[in-house]
Structure formats: structure tokens, C-alpha cells
Design a protein around this nucleic acid. Structure first.
Lengths: 303, 303
DNA sequence: AGCTCTTATGAATCATTGA
DNA sequence: GTCAATGATTCATAAGAGC
């Protein structure tokens, strides 16, 4: 078993990456600092300047990413003065101009979103996970993120009611007999482009931007073991921890000193964990169920 | 009980609406013909020309919408040649330039999305429902779409935990007695901006662009009984049927002859249904649970 | 192990107040 | 007048305690 490296570098990713050779990373997955009008927020970037701020950095991403690699950008525009900001839309257009292919937009549905009530708006329960690529032929391990089939398979396919047969039939538009055979006996299905994950809350002192299950899912999907993952805005180190758990090498870059410590601790703890009780993690990982459509019975059973 | 009108007009909405006075409609909700590169699709609009095609029509929408009205646009870009189209992003930017406020983007999560498998892409399980407004002060009946709460209410509100009291107390900084009364006896919560609706499948001969629950939800949210709803691309009449069920007046516009017949039949059938068995529909409607976050205990109990 | 009950806390948003 | 800070609002989840 080869050793897995997870390195946390200190500085602005634009500078750090300039020293790296082209075509180095298999996957870039990150959740950059969101645009924020409050200037006092350290590191906050104004929405109006966001694209301008982002482009020099994404130019490096494009250079250091391997041709078959993928870039996942987790981001969401805030509401302000009654409107959604448009800087994310503008960013997508600008990235395409820069040479990226906008392959897909995944939706992260935050099951436990922030509470609140306003006269003109409901709670915001989703974020964008934008997928960009350098080429049309990128690595994608779909089987790695297959999920247990829902109750659909369990209840309906086992004892097929007439209703289900006719409904299935009308959907497919052809005889039902042959196609249904593909589903019987299968217990896993491919996911969709909607991810259902709760935000991690209240477990540790540090608050990660995204739950570990999110980078984990994309790492499984777009890399193999031993591949190299980059998070240019690594924050408290969630991406590198996830990479290490999945036996991928990783580089995280962070410009804020206080996060730097946190990230290094996170990664060190993960490495220790792996040596001490790797089997435990595997179990734990299965339980997490890829973060997609967790079956209710499973969730209940674990308590 | 006043009579509810549902009128299906024939023609291009740009022309039809030009004859209507300004500030006429309380809500515009529609699912326009999607951009489609295949020119043979009747009525298909090329993605490159989509914004250009849409703007003269949305200009009329802006004129005929009441100041406190809302415009809901259900749309989703297709993938082509490995990339997502950008015309929807461009449309949002263009509509803002036209004078619209981009208030919110709701996600319609299609629980049972179309089956299929591709090497570079998972199944598409969501569509955008873009909310635009003329002014920042629009009508919004949030209570009309409240949904059953999670387990929280069940367990906690019955016997109020100390935490709820203390947090409330510390936040408000005054005695807790007065507002806590709002919580007792509540079993519903406000929804989020993610809608979980199944697509309607195979019950009718025509395949509606969206399930009736979708316009229904927005009609409940943004109009009162007796208000006037417009669907400028009404297709098979789903929006007008939903409006009629909810006792809102409606106008639907359709340019395709064959859909026109369908829509008029749909609306006529609905009107008949209303007279014959109104109570039945109400029951059915409750059961539908607004399509949002059905409680787990309920789901489990259902097995 | 299981089950209940308790507690903490989030990439939030708007209206109001104060400088 | 513009801009920044403060207060009010709110719910799904995980972890922990107790039985």
C-alpha cells in the first residue's frame, strides 16, 4: 500500500500554482470564498469584483489540470436588497470564454438549511456545484457513486402491482416485459445530478464550508486511487481529509493563517485514523451512503 | 360564489398581449418552448436565437403584469455536444436589463426523472423555476404553501425543551412568555426554495410540460382567489386547469392548433369537475402535501 | 444494543437603527 | 443621502445523556 500525501500550502493559490507544471492534477474541487458586500469580513470579495478576482486564479486551474481532469466549483449567490446576485452567472460565461467547458450543474440540496423567515423569500436550501472540463473526454467512474435503490425497487419490483406495470409501460412506451428484467435483482442505481446532503452541524469547533460527503462524492466520481486532488481554497481542510480517506493524494492551498492550522490538524488526524483503524472508516463510509437518497430505514437503524 | 373564467386564446402571445391593457395580470407562470437545435421540431427555437426571440414577449409580460405581480419561468437548458447551453444564463441577464428584478431561483427537483444512461453525465433531475418581479413589494401568501413539519414539532413542541426557551430568551433579551405562544400547536413549517415534485406520468395521452402541482404551488403562493393568472405558452392547458381548481381566473395563449384543442378540453373538463365534485378535489389536494418534505415518520409508516 | 429526550448550531436575509 | 452594524426571525440534523 503506497503512502498517501496530503499537503497544505500557505498562500494565494494564484501564486502557489504558478510554480506547478501544467497538467498536474486529476481533480480540482473547491468552495471559494463567497462574494460578500461586507468589507470587514476578512477575505470577502465584493460581488461586483468577483469575476475579475476569480479569473486569474481559474486561469492557473486550467493550466495545472490534466486534460482528462475535472473542476468542481461549489458556489451560491446571495440575496441582497430583494434580488439574487448575478455574478455567478457572469462567472460561468467568463469561464467558458477562458476556455473551460461547462459540462454540468449539479444541485446540492441542503436538507437542513439555515432557518429564518422573510416576507418575500423562503429559506435557501440549495447550492450550485458547477462542473467544468478542459476536454470532452474526462475520467468519470460512475459505478463508484452508485446508490442503493430506493423503496421503489424494494416494494414495487418485488411484488409488482398491475398499476405499476401499466405506469411503467406507459412511460417507456413499449412492452414492459423485457425492460423490467434489467431492474429485478439489481440493488443499486446511478444517481442523478441532484445531491441530497445535510450540512454538518455542531460536531466540531471548526465549521467546514461544505460537509465532507460533498468533496468525497466528487472525488470518488472523478478520480482513481492514487490520483492527485487540488483544493485551492481549502479552508479547514475538508477536501484533503476526504481525499486521504479515499486514498487519493491531495494539495490544499489556504491564505488565512488561522485556517491553515486547522487544516493541517484535520489532515494529520485523518492520517492517524487511517493507520489505526482503517476498517472502521470503511464501515463508516458505507454508512454515509454516498450522501444520496439515504434510505430511511437505514438511517433509523443506525441510531 | 362568483364564476371562474378560463380562456384559451389562439395566437402568438406577443400579438395577443399587445391588445391587453397594462397591469392586468396578478401572476404569469409558464414553461416556454425549450430551445432546440433540431429545427424540425415545430415551434422549436434555436438556442443561439432564444434570448432574441424571448425578449419582445417578456416585454409584453412586463407591461401587462400588475406591480405587485410575479412572473415564474420554468426552464432548463439541455446538454448539447457535452456542454450545458448558456442561453438561460444570458436570458436572466437580459431580463434584468429589460427591467425585471431577479428575485429568486427555485429548484424543481424531479423525483422520478427520465431514465437513461450516458458515459459523461447522470440523469437530469432538476429544472429552474425563475422568479421575476416588477417591484420589490409583491404579493406572497406564504401560509398557503406551508408543509407538515419534520419530527421536530412532534417531539419538541409538545413539551418545550429548556434550550428553546433559553435561546429565545437570550436572543430577545426579555421575558419569554409572549411569543412562545406562536409555536404551541404548530405543526407546519414554511417550505424552502427546493420543490420536490414527481413528474406526472402516463395518465393522459398528452405529456404536459410540467405537472399540475407545479403551477398550482406558485398560484397558491402568489395569488388570491379570484385573481387573474396568465400562461403565455399554455400548451395543453395545465396552468389554466390548475388556476380553475384553485378558483383563480386565467388566460392561456397557445400558437399551436393541436394543443389548442387539448387545452380547451382540459379546461372544460376541469370546469365540469368543479361543479360535480368539488369536495373530492380538495381532499386530493391535501394529500398531495404541496410536494415538499414529506415527514419521515409518515413515509416509514406507509411501508 | 436500542429508544427517547435534550441541546447546539449552521456560507441566511431583511428591517431598523446609527454614523 | 449612503453605508455599516444590530436585532428578529427560524428548522433539520447530529451528538450526547439517560433509561
Amino acid at each position: 500500500m503506497r503512502e498517501i500525501r496530503a499537503e497544505i500550502k500557505y498562500g494565494d493559490c494564484a501564486d502557489i500554482l504558478a510554480g506547478d507544471p501544467a497538467n498536474t492534477f486529476d481533480l480540482i474541487v473547491t468552495s471559494p470564498p463567497y462574494a460578500d458586500k461586507r468589507k470587514n469580513t476578512y477575505g470577502g470579495v465584493s460581488p461586483d469584483k468577483y469575476v475579475e478576482w476569480f479569473l486569474p486564479r481559474s486561469e492557473q486551474f486550467l493550466r495545472v489540470l490534466k486534460p482528462a481532469g475535472t473542476f468542481i466549483l461549489n458556489i451560491k449567490e446571495k440575496a441582497e436588497n430583494g434580488e439574487r446576485h448575478t455574478f455567478v452567472l457572469e462567472l460561468i460565461l467568463a469561464l467558458r470564454k477562458q476556455g473551460w467547458l461547462w459540462t454540468e450543474e449539479f444541485i446540492w440540496h441542503k436538507k437542513n438549511c439555515y432557518p429564518g423567515k422573510w416576507p418575500n423569500r423562503f429559506r435557501d436550501a440549495w447550492e450550485r456545484c458547477l462542473q467544468f472540463n478542459k476536454t470532452r473526454h474526462f475520467k468519470m467512474n460512475q459505478k463508484a457513486v452508485m446508490v442503493p435503490m430506493g423503496d421503489w425497487a424494494e416494494t414495487r419490483l418485488k411484488s409488482l402491482g398491475k398499476n405499476d406495470v401499466t405506469r411503467f409501460d406507459s412511460q417507456v412506451g413499449s412492452g414492459f416485459g423485457k425492460n423490467i428484467a434489467n431492474w429485478l435483482g439489481r440493488d443499486k442505481a446511478y444517481p442523478t445530478n441532484v445531491l441530497h446532503l445535510a450540512t454538518e452541524c455542531g460536531n466540531k469547533s471548526h465549521s467546514a464550508a461544505f460537509p465532507e460527503a460533498l468533496p468525497e462524492w466528487f472525488i470518488k466520481l472523478f478520480t482513481d486511487e492514487g490520483d492527485l486532488v487540488l483544493d485551492p481554497f481549502v479552508g479547514s481542510g475538508t477536501t484533503c481529509a476526504a481525499a486521504q480517506h479515499l486514498r487519493r493524494n491531495s494539495v490544499g492551498i489556504e491564505i488565512k493563517q488561522e485556517y491553515l492550522e486547522l487544516a493541517r490538524e484535520e489532515v494529520a488526524g485523518t492520517a492517524y485514523q487511517l493507520m489505526e483503524k482503517a476498517p472502521e472508516y470503511g464501515k463508516n463510509n458505507d454508512r454515509r451512503n454516498n450522501g444520496l437518497h439515504r434510505r430511511k430505514s437505514t438511517a433509523a437503524a443506525h441510531k
